[in-house]
Write a protein that binds this DNA or RNA. Structure first.
Lengths: 212, 212
DNA sequence: GCCGCGATGTATCGGACCGATACATCGCAC
DNA sequence: GTGCGATGTATCGGTCCGATACATCGCGGC
């Protein structure tokens, strides 16, 4: 999962570790806390060893003397390689079971702008199926095993069930949207904004406004 | 977290591993998938080594002959010890930061029937605080960094924000209930035979709502 | 009779990820 | 001129997961 997220982010711009973590937190803030350095740095090394990314130390040019005195440690900027982009595309397209768990789905969804429509649809439907299964499980427990459980546990299940139902509805909307052509959700599309974000393929909606 | 969950469950009845996993899945189905055996068995051994639980092999009495021939492997039933109950109480009462993340809160909540009211309140408020922080983070991103992100990522954030708002409302209700209502106190375990488990009276939520 | 097959049951192993910790630099306010 | 928070790289121990292996049991089909 981390691998996919890193490759995805580095496709937008080269970054160093700290930046990567912040961007990741911004992009995935809805589904998980900030990534740990204890995962990030080892993963970066692994990706580099595999050739998916390259590392470029940011030394202040011509480090003449003082070769080993306190050895200034510059920032290390990582750049994705062509092989890395290939790898990313492959990871995005092939969906394992982990693609549909909370984190996996979130990461995939966050990179939907770089995913073709067929794959988007497949992932959304897979996720819906999974959530529906969870929902049925909760309904079973609430229906059949209700007497065995205390009031708090039941309340927890009930809240979980509600969350499932909401997510299914959300996914239905997204799926319908996806099938009918474009755009997740449609707020008013005013604001003639100079589009940035250049290269990525047809982005679904336009800028959303609504400031409360 | 697993430790807490196991100690909590074993307080309701002695169980073997497989059963433990199923009960855990039923009780925590709303917040996480079934626990892995790769976590369960090592944890059981750890708990046993610490003296919180004891293991009683279920051999079919008088195993007369065939002492080492295919060596029938009976089920291993675990029982919580007095020290284990103490440990459980301690784990429930002392709240670290991990108490408020998704899984940690879920596990604590699932054992609220064995938690005193003051602690319940503390945990609910801690959780609310944490979710409010996440909510503010999402609002920030949606407000300030909206132009930097594509429509799908924004939609993810928006959905996450909504989930946060809903959970805060849910927590508010529970907190109000906890404050004004009487304490649904511990269904003090066992003693004489036929357990009914039904006795923790005032349920947190109000009347169940619509049935589709 | 016996064969497969799904549920029950115990167990290990490698790997992913986290939380705590350490250490160094930089800019800025006091 | 000094503390202090943000920036920045890195490791270590520990928790938990997913895949895998293996054994027993009851049941239905052939």
């Amino acid at each position: 999962m981390l691998e996919l997220a890193i490759l995805g982010l580095l496709q937008e711009a080269p970054m160093h570790g700290y930046e990567l973590r912040k961007e990741l937190a911004a992009k995935l803030g809805a589904i998980r806390a900030a990534i740990s350095y204890g995962s990030l740095y080892p993963t970066l090394r692994r990706l580099q060893a595999a050739g998916w990314i390259t590392e470029a130390a940011e030394t202040p040019a011509t480090a003449e003397e003082v070769p080993a005195l306190t050895s200034r440690r510059g920032r290390v900027v990582y750049t994705i390689t062509a092989e890395g982009k290939e790898r990313f595309a492959q990871l995005i397209a092939q969906a394992g079971p982990e693609t549909y768990d909370d984190t996996g789905f979130g990461v995939h969804f966050a990179f939907f702008a770089r995913t073709d429509q067929a794959t988007r649809l497949r992932i959304l439907e897979g996720r819906r199926r999974k959530i529906e299964e969870r929902r049925e499980g909760l309904r079973d427990v609430l229906g059949r095993a209700a007497e065995r459980l205390d009031a708090y546990t039941l309340e927890l299940q009930r809240h979980g069930l509600e969350a499932c139902e909401r997510e299914v509805r959300w996914l239905e909307e997204l799926i319908a949207n996806e099938r009918s052509g474009r755009a997740p959700t449609v707020p008013e599309a005013g604001t003639a904004g100079g589009r940035r974000e250049n290269d990525s393929p047809p982005p679904p909606g336009e800028s959303r406004k609504e400031r409360p």
